[in-house]
């Protein structure tokens, strides 16, 4: 009874077994609701599961999976590098307008710019990378700037009293001191990139990818296939998020000490 009460209490610290129990129960409830409420058009979880198994068993899937993962890794790597450089440059007044402009690019729709990027890119792969970068960087940068804005004045003052110059202060407080948070921003924004992958892959289908599979199943109104690919995309995304979270703690052990969850 006491444990049940804890499930609904703010800031309650649960044992990992209890958290696992919560997840399992909620997944079961979701599956039961899905099974009972889907009509004739929407496939049942059983059908979706069967389709998922058949997709996972095909060799085509692994080619598409590798294509998507390598595309996202490449896009993320370049986007992180650009966003980090811009975030650090934001502290130099000369670059502030440029950084502000990139942040505001969140409000620019990709659709209208696809033609421009097509003209700029040499092939389909480059087009997809451009689109990913354009889609991810403004969001990365916004999150990174909020991390920098959260730095206390006192921490900067500490550097000054320790006789550091402005560049050393930037290195110590903003770069080294916030590397764990920058990594977390990357982890959080990975979801945006992963979500974009299907839209981006639709622009050039020659290289394949999970997005291409999704479009193919949509075209033939194979909803079991659509749901199965969606679930695979979802599971891979969650798994990557989990791994990145673990990697953050491994790389930056102090990060765990600052978390209230």
């Amino acid at each position: 009874m006491n444990q049940l009460k804890q499930f609904f209490e703010p800031f309650a610290i649960l044992k990992s077994r209890s958290i696992l129990l919560l997840i399992v129960v909620q997944v079961i409830i979701a599956l039961v609701v899905w099974q009972l409420t889907c009509g004739a058009l929407i496939p049942t979880p059983t059908k979706v599961f069967q389709k998922m198994m058949s997709i996972l068993g095909s060799s085509e899937f692994y080619d598409d999976f590798i294509a998507s993962v390598s595309l996202i890794a490449q896009g993320m790597f370049i986007s992180i590098a650009i966003a980090l450089v811009l975030a650090y440059l934001s502290l130099i007044p000369f670059f502030r307008p440029l950084v502000e402009f990139v942040v505001k690019c969140r409000y620019l729709t990709l659709t209208g710019l696809i033609f421009l990027f097509t003209l700029l890119s040499s092939d389909g792969h480059a087009l997809k990378i451009y689109l990913l970068i354009f889609g991810i960087v403004p969001f990365f940068l916004t999150s990174l700037l909020s991390v920098i804005d959260g730095i206390s004045r006192q921490e900067i003052e500490l550097c000054k009293t320790l006789r550091m110059n402005n560049w050393q202060t930037l290195l110590e407080v903003v770069i080294r001191g916030r590397l764990d948070q920058a990594f977390d921003v990357m982890r959080q924004n990975f979801a945006i990139a992963w979500m974009m992958i299907t839209a981006v892959e639709a622009q050039s289908m020659s290289e394949g990818g999970l997005g291409t599979q999704l479009i193919k199943y949509n075209k033939y109104i194979d909803l079991s296939g659509v749901f199965a690919v969606l679930i695979i995309i979802f599971i891979v995304g969650v798994l990557c998020d989990f791994l990145l979270g673990k990697m953050r703690i491994w790389l930056f052990p102090y990060a765990k000490l600052q978390s209230i969850r």
């Binding site: 206390s152 500490l158 000054k160 009293t161 006789r163 110590e172 407080v173 001191g177 764990d180 600052q258």
Partner: peptide, 28 residues
């Protein structure tokens, strides 16, 4: 840099160990 400050909430570099926090004093 000529006068040290110890703030009320004892600001330290949270990403450094205590040893590394002290070393940064000696580094400068």
């Amino acid at each position: 840099g000529e006068v040290g400050i110890v703030h009320q909430n004892y600001i330290l570099f949270n990403h450094r160990t205590i040893e590394a926090n002290l070393k940064i004093g000696l580094d400068h």
